[in-house]
Write a protein that binds this DNA or RNA. Sequence first.
DNA 1: TTCTCTGCAAACGCTTTGCACGGAT
DNA 2: ATCCGTGCAAAGCGTTTGCAGAGAA
Lengths: 137, 137
Amino acid sequence: MAGIKQTIEMLRSKNIRPSMARIRILDYLLGTTDHPTVEMIHRKLLPEIPTLSKTTVYKTMELLVEADLARLLHMDESEAHFDGNVGDHGHFKCKRCGQVFDFEVDLDALKTRGLEGFSIDEKNLFFSGFCPRCCSS
Amino acid sequence: MAGIKQTIEMLRSKNIRPSMARIRILDYLLGTTDHPTVEMIHRKLLPEIPTLSKTTVYKTMELLVEADLARLLHMDESEAHFDGNVGDHGHFKCKRCGQVFDFEVDLDALKTRGLEGFSIDEKNLFFSGFCPRCCSS
DNA sequence: TTCTCTGCAAACGCTTTGCACGGAT
DNA sequence: ATCCGTGCAAAGCGTTTGCAGAGAA
């Protein structure tokens, strides 16, 4: 948790008005490494904000992604995941339990051929397989 | 194009019966670098096979992916793309024209930290941005 | 016949949109 | 009074499924 005041400041710095829903959603996202889906965010915050709708979560996430306060991950055919860590790193999704894990990787050191003349905005590295817990059971 | 006979042999070697639809779909996939979607495959083959349904394309692609004759790419929120090249390489999607390009990359040389104990099945490297043609217009 | 392949239509799941209410400025 | 955030319900879109007819063995 970054602290509510800092969360509000982050929103303000991107010219996003800090409404209750936005603050709580961003605060939750910054304080977890769960890579939550819209469904997970909604389920998590509903006890605190009983009127919160999924529509609001969708719209808020769109705002946060556009403002580069969150990363949108489409790892497979199922729902989108969100990551409050916008720095360069890779993602691993377990095929059995569905959990998403971060891992460190030096994307700048990656040598590629065939991208001469391309302007690269975004780099995504997605691995999948089985996580340690699911490997051993 | 690999040639119809080789296409049939590829299917047979994976114990997939070489029906007309399957042969044509795989043959098209092997002969293009377009990374077609289901819609694109259907549109392309409909003139040759006027009765072809999208359901058949979906089911055939599922078979081919399971048999490792094709790769399934979920690059973003829109439709899935397919790649007949199942070797290791990266994919770049242009944000403007939507085209998907292959590029070479040495995924084995990639150093990662935080994946100790994980069993890795699949590695996907997705870049996005603007392709040379869209850069200059 | 028996088994598989195919195609239509409906169902499905995630996401987006239209619209109206409500709160803040 | 105006603007913006929110929530409901419906629509949208890619994909999957149920089932029946067609076709191969």
